[in-house]
Design a protein around this nucleic acid. Sequence first.
DNA 1: CGCCAACTTGATGGCTGTCAAGTCAGGTGG
DNA 2: CCACCTGACTTGACAGCCATCAAGTTGGCG
Lengths: 270, 270
Amino acid sequence: MSESPDTRVDMDQTARDDRRANFFRVQKSAGEISIGHLKAACSQCNLRESCLPYGLSEPEITRLDELVGARRRVKRQHHLYRAGDTFEAIYAIRSGFFKTDVLIEDGRDQVTGFQMAGEILGMDGISTETHTCNAVALEDSEVCIIPFAKLEGLSREIEALQHHFHKVMSREIVRDQGVMMLLGTMRAEERLAAFLLNISQRFVARGYSQAEFHLRMTREEIGSYLGLKLETVSRAFSKFQEGGLIAVQQRHIRILDIPGLKTVLDHRGY
Amino acid sequence: MSESPDTRVDMDQTARDDRRANFFRVQKSAGEISIGHLKAACSQCNLRESCLPYGLSEPEITRLDELVGARRRVKRQHHLYRAGDTFEAIYAIRSGFFKTDVLIEDGRDQVTGFQMAGEILGMDGISTETHTCNAVALEDSEVCIIPFAKLEGLSREIEALQHHFHKVMSREIVRDQGVMMLLGTMRAEERLAAFLLNISQRFVARGYSQAEFHLRMTREEIGSYLGLKLETVSRAFSKFQEGGLIAVQQRHIRILDIPGLKTVLDHRGY
DNA sequence: CGCCAACTTGATGGCTGTCAAGTCAGGTGG
DNA sequence: CCACCTGACTTGACAGCCATCAAGTTGGCG
């Protein structure tokens, strides 16, 4: 069930140029599609220890349930929100995989991050009440919609929620600093090594294998994130494979030598 | 008055290797040096419209006064905090100019930002309760110390304060995205043009000339921030001067052609 | 089976890093 | 007051990393 209603969201790609239509559609998908049969419940969610409810008591989590109104499914290649959309909610990823990217007028764009289950999307919109980047699902995904005004309200009552939310925002700032470091000081192979180790680590935190995983993004998206061209990314993958650090087959990655990858970061030898 | 007590803070540079001594000094300077004669008062501060009190009513600002315990002077080249320091407070810059930077083991470092009066420092520490970067004054400066636990407490009572603080944090995230864009997609001259326009704009917002200002940082620090070597920064300055876009004399900058600088950003011609 | 997007690999060139030398400005001490 | 020193900056020559352009390969899907 609940597969067919999502066809409405298929407009996502074609609505790219009609901002008002896009606003409307977002409202509709939040209000009509997801509510009811997709009611979220933090108290029942197996991600609650790595998501917003972290550190809350049982009764407090129950109060979160009231706040997190609904879930929303986002199909692969469809937008969760776009730059310019009015900000109303943040989103907790329940399943799936997203990227965020920014476009500037002259056509250049950059992927600013990849997000996976348990992570929070949309905090860029708080400052101007307008989203400043696009969030696109890289595989069929599902998010919990957290109306921001309600979150602030509940944060004023539940100290642990307030504090944890602040930590989540701060973590985003620290993460961005790490990316700045990567883009500002590292060469191509170091960037890719750092990227692979980061992805690996995040998969581990979710109970998946640290050594073997399937990338959800293209070489071009990886390159955009790392400030490299897709050819350079591809060459670095090949180099790592030749060096026995990883085994690559398209998007399927097996890490053979984690200490070796870390060595790439530290100095510049193998 | 209040000039001599700061000699104690002169230890900042030599204490670099003694983490515990550093912790101690920070406590002392917050507790002993600044309190009393340097009592902060948001209600009296002419920066309140661009700082944390923004949007608060008069009585609410008065409550902020109780929260913002003390000011602290930080002399040029001295640290406000260091990576590894335990996080206890955020800081509102009352006067002066700061940089934040991150170091990694192998000696590489990167300037992650420049901060001026009215801006907030230290939010990187919230997530892990430990600062992740260093904050260094680039000129003799003064900050208001905002104990974070107290800020969270008051935020639970004053909705406008809570909301504005969230906006401030979000603004930091958006700013970082802009830097990622700069580092990931722009070439040297574009980066410098973006940097100059950004600095100019922030000076304007503080009532200074948009066209003429004094840079507080070295070419090397600019380069580190922009992911370039200092020689490249220097060459770009010279190029802009030849092109009649700016007049450079060491750190004194006069912008002659703002639209011209914006053109550098858009495409790649002059 | 054939198409197409994604990916790989090679050849070449340009931007920026690196190394080096020289200039400038400010501060110190004689 | 001036010589000197030092850190910051500028400028030049050269090299290397990565972008660019191009051609070919792979795998998925209609």
